[in-house]
Amino acid sequence: MSEKKQKKRRKKIAFALHAPQAETVLLAGDFNQWNPEKHVLKKSRNGAWETRLMLSPDTYEYKFVVDGKWQMDPVNPRICQNCFGTANNLLTVAE
């Protein structure tokens, strides 16, 4: 198989969380081996924390880490159960 066929085209995906009182907001998911230190969100003037990632087409699980506490994405209703007895958000990046 050629290299072009194996490599799916990545897309820029925005993640945002409105948390004006937060000191830090991090993003963890299976796209970064659940390491929140890899993706630190930046705070905008309106209190929203934002980042953008380049992701290949697939379905990903993720959560935010707000001031050290794991938190669901309140604007994403797509969830799945995880091995800890809680839930993660789901994000599907289309081809």
Results as ranks from 00 to 15, higher is better:
D58K: 13
N76A: 09
D58T: 03
W70M: 11
Y62R: 08
D67H: 01
L53E: 13
G68Y: 00
N82L: 06
R52S: 15
D67Q: 02
R78D: 14
K69N: 12
T59H: 02
T59Y: 01
W70R: 14
F64W: 04
L53H: 09
P74R: 03
E50H: 12
A48T: 15
M72A: 10
P57N: 03
M72C: 02
G68T: 02
Q71H: 04
S56L: 07
W70S: 14
C80T: 15
Y60F: 14
Q71Y: 00
C83D: 13
Q71G: 01
E61W: 06
P57L: 07
L55D: 07
F64M: 03
F84S: 05
Q81H: 10
K69L: 07
Q71V: 12
K63T: 12
T59M: 05
E50P: 00
L55Y: 04
M72N: 13
C83G: 08
F64P: 05
T51R: 01
P77T: 08
Q81S: 15
R78V: 01
S56A: 15
Y62P: 09
N82V: 06
Y60M: 07
P57Y: 05
S56V: 10
K63W: 07
S56Q: 13
D73T: 03
K69T: 13
E50N: 14
G68R: 05
S56M: 11
E61K: 14
Q71E: 14
P57D: 01
V66R: 06
P77C: 07
I79L: 12
Q71F: 01
F84D: 09
K63N: 13
C80P: 00
S56H: 08
F64C: 06
C83I: 11
N82W: 08
S56I: 04
T51M: 05
V65Q: 04
Q81C: 04
T59I: 07
F64R: 03
N82C: 09
D58W: 05
P74M: 01
P74A: 05
E61A: 13
D58L: 01
P74Y: 03
P77Q: 06
D67S: 03
T51P: 07
K63Q: 12
K69V: 14
W49L: 08
E61G: 04
G68W: 03
V65I: 12
V66G: 03
A48D: 11
K63G: 08
R78N: 13
Y60S: 06
V66A: 03
V75C: 00
K69Y: 02
V66C: 02
I79A: 04
L53G: 11
